[in-house]
Structure formats: structure tokens, C-alpha cells
Design a binder for these strands. Sequence first.
DNA 1: GGCAATACCTTGACAGGCGAGGTACTTCAC
DNA 2: GTGAAGTACCTCGCCTGTCAAGGTATTGCC
Lengths: 116, 116
Amino acid sequence: MSIAADLIRGHTDAIILAQLIAEDSYGYKINNTIKEATDNRYELKEATLYTAFRRLEQSGCISSYWGDGEGGARRRYYSITKRGTETYLNLVNEWKQANEIINKLIYSERAEETDK
Amino acid sequence: MSIAADLIRGHTDAIILAQLIAEDSYGYKINNTIKEATDNRYELKEATLYTAFRRLEQSGCISSYWGDGEGGARRRYYSITKRGTETYLNLVNEWKQANEIINKLIYSERAEETDK
DNA sequence: GGCAATACCTTGACAGGCGAGGTACTTCAC
DNA sequence: GTGAAGTACCTCGCCTGTCAAGGTATTGCC
């Protein structure tokens, strides 16, 4: 995994919620989806993932129910709530702003030349 | 200040180094530059800033010297080292990748519709 | 039976951010 | 001359999110 987690820190919730907006899902699957989507350049560590689930459920952004795993262990499915959807939209918005800010601050004119 | 710090966490070093590539500078000024550049939407808290200076100096990315403040307290200036420049370029590169990854993961097709 | 894959969970340590507090110097108004 | 406001630096201790390491349970296959 090549990307420092600290760079993505703070976006974990948004990433999870984005998955759940598409459809109800469970930890193991979300994790794999993320790995595939990024060509194994990034993954949510299990501990991080499950910590995030607790956090999101506690704040009413998601709810969970047990489903059965076809050919595997039982799964705990999560669905996104109304509050979760709102939160998601806010997080996306914050990301847009943060993105803009970082892009403005991280590039130095002098560095641009050096970079070429 | 509207942007959650966690979203920018991990970029602090890159932001500081970007300033120092342009020219030698000192804490107070860097802080103000950042505030202005972002229309007060973001600032590095002092504690964060000085912690970062220690960290960067310890790892050989920057070096410091005392200058005098014209009409104010004395200033500790920092300059970026060769290692600092290298580190900076790496961080920029990592940021590009992280940016790409977050953009890929944070948007859900379903959400795109909702967002419109 | 044993292994791999699926699937979930907890504990404890660590690092970075930052609120709160402090120091010291200069300038300017009263 | 004194008090406030601006410049400038610094430290302590808490909080939060990440994650290595460890664990559990189920199924399918050889």
C-alpha cells in the first residue's frame, strides 16, 4: 500500500458513506471494493474500518442488521440513514473546499519550476 | 475557520515546505500568508505550526536562524534544506495520488444524482 | 482433520492537531 | 509612565483517528 494513510485521514467516513449510498453493504466487501477501485494502492485497515462503523452508527449515520453469508461467515450489513446522507453531502462539500485549499497552499511558484 | 483540520492533516509539512521553497520565512508570517491565501477559511494553529517546525528541523528538512524583527519581537527564520526540497517533491507527488484516490472513492454514482 | 477463505471484533500504542496558557519586545494613545 | 494591542515565539496535556496484533466463528475443499 503506497499511500500514507494520514493523507486520507478524515475521509474515511465519507468513503464508507459513499459505498453505502450505492447499496447496503458489509465491512469485508467495502474493504475489497476500495482495494480494487484503487488498484491496491489504498485500503482501509480492518481496525480503522470497524472503528468507523461504530462511530457512524453511534452518530446515527448508519444502521446495521445481520445477514447471512452465502458460503462464509455471517455478515453485518449496514444501511445509510437520512442523517447519514446529509452528513455525506456535507463531507463531500468539505472535501471540495479542502481540496481547493490544499492545492492553493501546497504548490510554490518556485517549486513549479523545480518540478518541471 | 470552516475546514476540519483532519481533512488537511498530513499536509501540514508540505504546506510549510512550499512556503519555504519560495523564500526563508518565520512562523508568524507563514501563518498569516496561509490565512490570507485561503480568505481566512484555514489556518495552521500555532501549536501545530511550531510542532511541525520541530519535526521538520529534527528530520533535517529545514534549518533555522535568529533574525531580528523590525518593530516587533525577534524572529526565528527557517530555510529549507536539500533534503527538505526532496521531501517536498515527494509530498506533492503523494498528494496527487491521494487526491486521485479520494476523488475516486468519495463519489457514489447514486450520490451524483442526489447531489444535482 | 487441516487449511484457506470469508467475516467480524477488541485492545493498546502512537502520532498529529490544538486549546490553553505562558514569555518578551515594540509602538502608540492617553 | 502605563496600559493595551500587535508582533513573535514556545510548551503542556488532552483528544481523536489509525492500525499492528491478536482473537473468534463459519464454510468448503482436499
